[in-house]
Amino acid sequence: MNRSRVYGVFLRYFFVAKKGLHQLSDIFYWPFVDILLWGLTSLWIRSQSDIQNLPLVLMTGLIFWQIVWRGSVDISVNLLQEFWQRNLVNLFSTPLKFREWIAGMLLLSISKLCITITFGTLVVYLLYALNVFTVGWAFLPFAASLIIFGWTISFLASSLIIYFGHKIEMIAWMIGFLFAPFSAVFYPVDVLPEWARAIAWCLPTTYIFQGMRCILLGGSCPVSYFWISLSLNIIYLIAAIFIFRWSFEKSRHKGLARLE
């Protein structure tokens, strides 16, 4: 792994991110709108119900879901940038290795995520006087687990995009939301029908959201939740990168120029 090349990839997408309005809106605008919408909704629900911590549960769920969603679009949208700007052939006619490309994108993804989390947490605190760090130090491993799953989703979306090309580019934004209902972001898993519960317990995100609710509602998160989530994440991420690599090679065999 060549650090200069990883930094080159980081810079390439960083330059786009700091200029592209839609990239900036992903970091600031949409999280802000979500927080405003869900915050006010949860305040109203609290006034109608006995669950005192509901706003905090919903807000923390929202911030946590931003982490998954942020990760789920990062890789695939960066890939689409290369399609749109006819740069894929340029990029891979350099010494750049596939793994360096991935590492550079992940580095930027982490950086953008840190900004989104800081911004979101600040907004939640300023608007609702709520501290999403109430979950304590569990926040860090939880966040790590969530972003890893976001990347897994993004690698799967990228695998499809690089194989099939432009015609399915919408999948980059759609695929993340497919996992939201099963991850039990805003409600307990018990709410789901039985068949959906089976799917939910196969997702690493479900354990994190369940654990988060346990802590916020006064209990403690079973340590096993974190370890199961981490184990599933590692398996899925490796599988997703493997699938992406396979799709990339298949696509390279057909010619990267056809994607531009």
């Binding site: 090349r5 080159g8 390439r12 330059f15 786009v16 200029k19 700007q85 350099t94």
Partner: peptide, 29 residues
């Protein structure tokens, strides 16, 4: 040690010339 140029490819158009060349320079160390 090998490079390439073509009329049929472009460079990221939102980036400046300097930014584009900086990224490519990093790829070659």
């Amino acid at each position: 040690k090998v490079s390439f140029a073509s009329t049929y490819t472009s460079l990221p158009y939102v980036l400046t010339i300097a930014e584009n060349l900086r990224c490519f320079g990093q790829f070659y160390g």
